[in-house]
Amino acid sequence: MGHGPGARGVVEKPQDFNAVMGKLAAYCKRYLPAMIIALILGAAGTVCQIVGPDKLKDITNEIIKGVTPAIVHGKPVFGSIDLQAVSRIGFTLVALYVGYALLSYAQSWIMATISQRTAQSLRDDISKKINRLPLRYFDNTSYGDVLSRITNDVDAIGQTLGQSLGALVTSVTLFFGALIMMFANNVTMTLTAIGVSIIGLVLMALIMRFSQKYFLQQQIALGQTNGHVEEMYAGHLIVKAYSGEADSIRTFERYNDSLYESGWKSQFLSGLMMPFMTFIGNLGYVAVCVVGAALAMDGRIEFGVIVAFMMYIRLFTQPLAQFAQATQNLQRCAAASERVFGFLEEPEMSVDATGSFAEHRA
């Protein structure tokens, strides 16, 4: 029963994120055109979402003009709301939100298909690779660790491709699109929102810095635990015959504790993202409302601008949380990809002219 490289509890060197993601991109190159189309659809849908608050601003201004009295000969004269203009803007707003929903659905459908095809291909390659590996590899690596690469690691890759990659593109589009629209409406209020959001960026960078290593440790510990459990069940009679229960329990507890520690730390740090970003969003919301009220009282902006900013501040801070979550998932995907491609790049046996197998190094 092997407890070699696959059973180590310490990460000897940090993963090369760029190299590993480059290998994954090369592996998915057959789906690249469809992936680009999906990401473009997602970005286009996000643009529809970004334009929405600006149309709400126009509706608000039309209503305000109709209910605000004009002073004529010292007397207030009330006008009427232009319902045709309000209806026209309202239908445009509905069309934008319907377009956003349809484009987002199309993106999700394409990315889900690509992710599952990729996961299917990886499982197939791993299955074929197992038949070409020399026996000495399995002497040094537990069977459960190999199975963990087929199940847990491949699933992590598929989930990231299906969800996080699209979310990363849409969050970037939403962030810069909302920023442009905010500057177009009012510079002072935009700078206020940016100042508050910088706090969120600093917190996000600190959390990402500490959480990266725990995601890799979690994947390794998961493989160790699965490998040990599989070996103990497969060799149950041998363990009983040689009174190895106590040693087996101690080994399992060590692996289980390692999985608990790395899993708890990675999930805890990852879970901090959303509360921090929610707090930053609420803080920015309050700051923008206060500054907007002061500007409106001075007559420097219309009331509709405040309404638009109340939505834009959400659209502006929301991508920070999405980007943070997508980045965390990409780190987990990189850790899983490192294990999968490390297995696929193991030295294989070669077939000579007589049809027999001989070991060789790739």
Rank of each mutant, 00 (worst) to 15 (best):
M1C: 12
V10M: 12
V10G: 06
K23P: 10
A34Q: 12
I37H: 06
A38N: 10
I63V: 13
V67K: 09
T68C: 03
K75F: 00
T92I: 09
L93N: 01
A95E: 02
V98C: 00
L103C: 08
I114F: 08
Q116F: 09
R123T: 09
K128C: 11
K128P: 01
L135G: 11
R136G: 12
D139K: 13
G144V: 03
T151F: 15
D155E: 14
S164D: 03
F183K: 08
N185A: 15
M189C: 10
I194Y: 09
V196W: 01
S197A: 12
R209I: 04
R209E: 11
S211L: 12
Q212P: 03
L216C: 14
A221V: 03
L222N: 09
Q224V: 13
Q224I: 15
H228Y: 05
H228F: 07
G235E: 07
G235D: 03
L237I: 13
V239H: 04
A241Q: 13
A241P: 03
A241F: 12
S243G: 14
A246H: 12
S248C: 08
T251Y: 06
N256P: 01
Y260L: 09
E261P: 00
E261Q: 05
K265T: 03
L269G: 10
M274N: 13
L283Q: 06
G284P: 06
G284I: 06
Y285W: 13
V286L: 13
L295F: 02
I301F: 00
I301N: 00
E302T: 15
V305D: 03
A308I: 00
M311P: 03
T317V: 08
Q318G: 08
Q331C: 07
C333N: 09
A334H: 07
A334K: 07
E338Y: 01
V340H: 01
P347N: 09
V351A: 13
G355L: 02
E359Q: 08
H360L: 04
H360I: 06
